[in-house]
Each structure stands twice: as structure tokens, then as C-alpha cells.
């Protein structure tokens, strides 16, 4: 019984929500920046002068992790884990958990796919450095969905009142 009450504790559930947001979005970004970074390294091996341009492409899939971190931080502070706000009830804890899901999951998937789009963009820059803008645009389209995930997470979070 103690276990059941522990996992239905409002603060625990809020931490779980924050963890999902930070964990998955962070993993997505790590994978994405790794894929793009490997591709960039391939080009730099042959042509070190392209480092600056390629860094931009590698950074693009890094934003998901940042979004996940923001949501996680917000959830933690609303649940009173950072700072001294009121402690949420079990139901509110579940709400905060749910609020963490969109950016966590969308961040994970979009991070990886954005990494692949960025790696493909690296191929453009390898051959036609003047087309960097187009390469960025292709990869940046994937960003839209990470942003939408962030928005939904934020709206949900914003609507939850504790106390």
C-alpha cells in the first residue's frame, strides 16, 4: 500500500512528467546531432574550410533537447520541487505528467529525423557551399513539429493550476 501511495504522489508524478520531457527530447537531440555531426566530420576530413557552415547544420537537431529541458524545468517548479510552490495532488500530478509527454515523444522522434535531414543537407554543402540556406531550410522544416510539441506541452502546463 505504501508503494501505491508513493507512485500516486503528486510530486512523484510531476517528476516523472519532467523526466519524460527531458529524457526523450534529450535523447532525440543527442542522436540527431550525432548523425549530423558524423556527416559534417566526413566533409571536414576532406575539406576543413567548411567547418563553420556545417556547425549550423549540426546544431539544428539540438533544439529538441532544449525544449524538453524548458518544459521539465517548468513542471518541476510548478510542482514545488524547485522553489517553494504548493504540492500538487495526485490528479494534478497526473496532469503534469501528461503535459510532459508531447515534447518528450515528438522531441525524440523529430530529433532523429531532423538529424537525418541535416546530414543530407551536409551533402549539399559538400558539393555546393553556396546552397547552405537551402540545406538549413530542409532540416528546419522538421523543427516545426518539435515546436508544435513544445507548444502543446506548454499550453497544457499553463492550464494546470496547483493549490
Amino acid at each position: 500500500m505504501e508503494f501505491l501511495s508513493a507512485i500516486s504522489d503528486g510530486q512523484f508524478l510531476a517528476i516523472a512528467g519532467a523526466a519524460i520531457a527531458a529524457l526523450f527530447a534529450g535523447m532525440g537531440s543527442a542522436k540527431g546531432t550525432s548523425i549530423a555531426g558524423q556527416a559534417a566530420a566526413g566533409v571536414v576530413t576532406e575539406d576543413p574550410g567548411k567547418f563553420g557552415q556545417l556547425l549550423v547544420l549540426q546544431l539544428l537537431p539540438g533544439t529538441q533537447g532544449l525544449y524538453g529541458f524548458i518544459i521539465a524545468f517548468l513542471i518541476l517548479s510548478k510542482a514545488g520541487i524547485i522553489g517553494g510552490a504548493a504540492v500538487p495532488t495526485a490528479a494534478q500530478g497526473f496532469q503534469l505528467l501528461a503535459a510532459g509527454l508531447p515534447i518528450g515523444l515528438v522531441g525524440y522522434v523529430s530529433g532523429i529525423y531532423q538529424g537525418k535531414a541535416a546530414a543530407a543537407g551536409v551533402g549539399i554543402v559538400a558539393k555546393k557551399p553556396e546552397e547552405l540556406g537551402k540545406a538549413i531550410t530542409f532540416a528546419a522544416i522538421v523543427e516545426t513539429y518539435a515546436l508544435l510539441g513544445l507548444l502543446v506541452s506548454f499550453l497544457a502546463y499553463n492550464g494546470i493550476t496547483i493549490g
Binding site: A36, Q38, A39, G42, A126
Partner: peptide
């Protein structure tokens, strides 16, 4: 399996 590093290097060599 993906090979971002290898493909990118080949892209440069293709030039």
C-alpha cells in the same frame, strides 16, 4: 544501417 560520415566524405570526393 546508416553511414553519415562515410557518405559525406564520398560526397566531397565526388567533386
Amino acid at each position: 544501417k546508416i553511414y553519415p560520415y562515410a557518405v559525406a566524405r564520398i560526397r566531397v570526393l565526388e567533386k
